[in-house]
């Protein structure tokens, strides 16, 4: 899932300082699981802002709402009548949600309340670790299920580099070398021959990606 971190309070307060009525919109999916922007975090931010601004003598009205997913138009459409009543909107979703909300309501200033950080796993409540960089060419079949793009500090596809010492990465000696881990995993599975091949350089994105499911080509593919 997408992992995000709540932005510092002062940064958020600064963004909305000129608006008397602000709606905070949470997202009930990824950012709710990582405790950054779900319904509860909307409540916390709203209480923080209300109290801090009241102490500063500013009159502000803060609305709170949370949708199932902000990266889906049908959920964002449902809050149109609420958005209309406010001068600005704070989105607590990942960067996708913030942009989708801003696109849907272009007349309203939309501000992000979280920093979208990575694609990661939920290790435990409050603890998340990165696993994938959404590179569009998944190599996990060749690497024993360990991502070279993300877990290797240099993102090498044909590792390791010359740097690992006792299985630790030269970029950060406290972290394991991903390629040493890949070697160990493949050895354990008797698949070391996979390392003999050379993986060609991957394509780097030069424009935002889009993907149309093969079963929806007629509907969405427009002649360029």
């Amino acid at each position: 899932m997408i992992i995000a971190e709540r932005k510092p309070f002062d940064e958020i307060k600064q963004m909305i300082k000129d608006y008397p009525k602000v709606l905070i919109v949470g997202c009930g999916t990824c950012v709710a699981v990582c405790l950054a922007g779900g319904e509860k975090e909307v409540g916390i931010l709203a209480a923080e802002l209300r109290m801090a601004l009241e102490l500063e003598g500013k009159k502000i009205e803060i609305g709170e709402t949370t949708v199932e997913r902000q990266c889906d138009r049908e959920f964002l459409e449902a809050i149109a009548s609420q958005v209309e009543q406010y001068d600005a909107v704070i989105s607590m979703a990942c960067g996708v949600g913030v942009q989708f909300l801003a696109e849907m309501y272009p007349e309203k200033p939309v501000f992000p309340a979280v920093n979208t950080t990575f694609l990661g796993a939920n290790e435990d409540i409050g603890f998340y670790t990165e696993r994938c960089s959404a590179c569009s060419t998944c190599y996990l079949a060749l690497t024993g299920g360990i991502c070279p793009v993300t877990m290797c500090s240099k993102g090498l596809l044909n590792g390791p580099c010359g740097g690992p010492v006792n299985g630790m990465c030269e970029v950060d000696r406290t972290r394991p070398c991903a390629w040493c881990q890949i070697y160990e995993r493949l050895k354990q599975q008797g698949r070391l021959d996979l390392l003999k091949g050379v993986v060609p350089a991957r394509e780097f994105k030069t424009k935002p990606a889009q993907f149309i499911h093969p079963a929806y080509k007629k509907k969405f593919e427009r002649p360029q």
Binding site: F9, D10, I44, E48, M51, A52, L55, E56
Partner: peptide, 8 residues
């Protein structure tokens, strides 16, 4: 820490 930031 939140209460410090808020000013309470």
């Amino acid at each position: 820490h939140l209460l410090d930031e808020i000013g309470i």
